[in-house]
């Protein structure tokens, strides 16, 4: 099993995709952080966003790392679909004809890669957001800004989104369809269910909603407080999704003819 996980990691790290995805993720988080720095303490329509010196600002800024979830989901989709696109799945199953361990190894490798992306995102946030607070004359309090909990939430979110991507990739097998489905899911479906208050009772049960519950961002940014599950329930929902995706990936692959 260790050998299979190493083989999966080898496959991922011997193509260029992973570092391209990581750079794009860091860029997007950079833009979010830049926006958070620029718009801090701005008043509009009688409501004001938290000032850079407040613990709430760091809390909001820190949660930007969760926006990396779409990139790791796409990475997961490609980890699975490129096996079919380039037919490398043939060689994979010739080296290891028992397919369930191969899928399990892919999922474990996915978790590791998701965690690595989360660490990269958190390191980037550290070098950008914390100086931003200090330069503004604020004090950084990790506990007041819930940094450990948000960081854990980002870690779980990114790691599990790779599994979501792998499951989705195994289901559709077509790379472009898989990537489009991942984008539509993250931006359109999750977006709609998390933004409209009437849909939030459903949205909180979706993977994105559960991931936000884990981070417990409970700040009114002008749209009202989000309707979220308690953190522990968010964690359970995410684990349930992970099991579901793993099952989908395995069930759709184990008996299929590779022609």
């Amino acid at each position: 099993m260790t050998a299979l996980v190493r083989a999966e990691l080898h496959k991922l790290f011997t193509t260029r995709l992973w570092w391209i995805m990581m750079i794009v993720m860091i860029l997007l988080i950079g833009i979010s952080l830049g926006f958070a720095i620029g718009s801090a303490g701005v008043e509009s329509n009688g409501l004001s966003t938290p000032a850079r010196t407040s613990p709430e600002w760091l809390e909001l800024a820190w949660s930007a790392g969760a926006s990396g979830s779409i990139f790791v989901m796409i990475l997961g989709v490609i980890m699975m679909t490129s096996e079919y696109r380039y037919q490398t799945v043939t060689g994979t199953f010739l080296a290891t004809p028992r397919r369930t361990p191969v899928i399990a190894a892919k999922l474990v490798a996915g978790l590791i890669v998701g965690a690595l992306f989360a660490v990269a995102a958190l390191l980037f946030e550290t070098v950008v957001a914390i100086p931003a607070v200090l330069i503004s004359g604020g004090e950084v309090s990790l506990t007041a800004s819930h940094i450990p909990q948000i960081s854990l939430g980002i870690l779980a979110n990114l790691a599990l989104n790779v599994l979501f991507g792998i499951g989705l990739g195994a289901l559709v097998r077509n790379q472009i369809a898989g990537v489009v489905a991942a984008i539509v899911w993250s931006y359109a479906i999750e977006g709609i269910f998390s933004s409209f208050p009437a849909l939030q009772p459903v949205g909180k049960w979706l993977p994105g909603g559960a991931a936000r519950a884990l981070m417990s961002i409970d700040i009114d940014t002008g749209l009202g407080r989000p309707d979220l599950l308690p953190a522990w329930a968010g964690a359970l929902v995410l684990i349930a999704y992970a099991v579901l995706f793993a099952f989908v990936a395995s069930a759709t692959t184990v008996r299929r003819d590779i022609t």
Binding site: K11, T14, T15, R16, L17, S82, Y86, Q87, T88, T90, G91
Partner: peptide
């Protein structure tokens, strides 16, 4: 088949 390779590897 001779196509079972990732072109970027």
């Amino acid at each position: 088949e001779a196509t079972s390779f990732h072109p970027g590897r």
